[in-house]
């Protein structure tokens, strides 16, 4: 993808972005709501036409009509908030969408992959949110795609259901599928992705492996002393960098090199030694915060 952009009137949804995916990797397109993730994905899925730049999917040009039909045959898509057909069963839904392609994978095999064997003959409308999303994943894989687009696959799911979806994505990765994942969950990107690109206001602000991004933009490690209270602050050695009180009673201390040992020795003989003490590594959340000055919000795009 090279310098891709999309404008709606005067609004610029995607502003000259460029990136590429390697075969077999899980790529996470990470950003807050309204950053331009879905627009970008839908350009790649040939659902929207770009207003500038170029994009190639599996070596086919998304702007060429003849190439678009080749792309459609070879990609699998799970749209954001997708629902299958209510009154068809899990298996019927898989076969329904499978029939749109010249070749489809065996539905039993897909049902096994997303772990829905018991629900095979249940109507879609009777399933819980997490199970519905797994049907969506099976449907996205029905044509044995070379590239799978998953647009916010875990939004709105409870933690258990999110884990189940992650598990399926991990299995796809093991099968060697290339996965293009959009998400506004930092932990999801950190857990699943080989490569992450962070998009904000239609522009890519950082790219790399999760570790590279954290090392480069995550900032310092933090020492957390839980339930230490305001009184706890006076036991800290002088000269260390600005301790902060968070969640009412927790002390957060950003660590400079060598400070950890100094602090631990200093508080060893104080009441703080009996508290829960933890060293936190920065996360992609911190990367985003440091790059934009904001936290990623939780609403849907």
């Amino acid at each position: 993808m090279n310098n891709l952009s999309k404008k709606y009137g005067d609004t610029v949804a995607v502003n000259g972005i460029s990136f590429g995916l390697s075969k077999g990797e899980v790529f996470a397109f990470l950003g807050p709501n309204g950053a331009g993730k879905t627009t970008t994905v839908e350009i790649l899925e040939c659902l929207r036409a770009p207003t500038g730049g170029q994009a190639k999917v599996l070596d086919y040009d998304v702007s060429k009509r003849s190439d678009q039909s080749e792309i459609r045959k070879r990609i699998g898509v799970l749209p954001q908030d997708f629902n299958a057909i209510d009154r068809l069963t899990v298996r019927e839904n898989i076969d329904y969408f499978g029939a749109m392609y010249d070749h489809q994978l065996d539905s039993d095999q897909l049902i096994e992959l997303v772990d829905l064997k018991d629900k095979r003959d249940e109507q879609f409308k009777t399933l819980s949110g997490g199970l519905k999303q797994r049907v969506g994943l099976a449907v996205a894989l029905v044509n044995d795609p070379a590239l799978v687009f998953l647009d916010e696959p875990t939004t709105g799911l409870d933690p258990r259901a999110r884990r189940d979806v992650w598990y399926v994505i991990e299995r796809l990765k093991k099968q060697g599928k290339t996965v293009f994942l959009t998400t506004h969950y930092m932990d999801e990107a950190e857990y699943l992705a080989d490569t992450v690109s962070i998009i904000d206001h239609g522009q890519i602000i950082a790219s790399g492996t999760p570790n590279e991004l954290i090392d480069a933009h995550g900032g310092k490690k933090t020492l957390v002393i839980r339930e230490a209270g305001e009184d706890g602050l006076k036991f800290l050695p002088p000269g260390i960098s600005r301790p902060q009180l968070k969640n009412e009673d927790d002390i957060y201390i950003p660590l400079n090199n060598g400070e950890l040992t100094t602090i631990l020795i200093a508080i060893g003989q104080t009441p703080l030694a009996n508290k829960e003490i933890e060293v936190r590594r920065p996360t992609l959340d911190d990367v985003f915060l440091n790059l934009t000055g904001r936290r990623v919000s939780e609403e849907g795009e």
């Binding site: 899925e45 659902l47 045959k73 969408f97 749109m100 392609y101 010249d102 449907v139």
Partner: peptide
């Protein structure tokens, strides 16, 4: 569902 179908042939 229509969006999904539009990504198929």
């Amino acid at each position: 569902i229509i969006k999904k179908l539009a990504t198929t042939p």
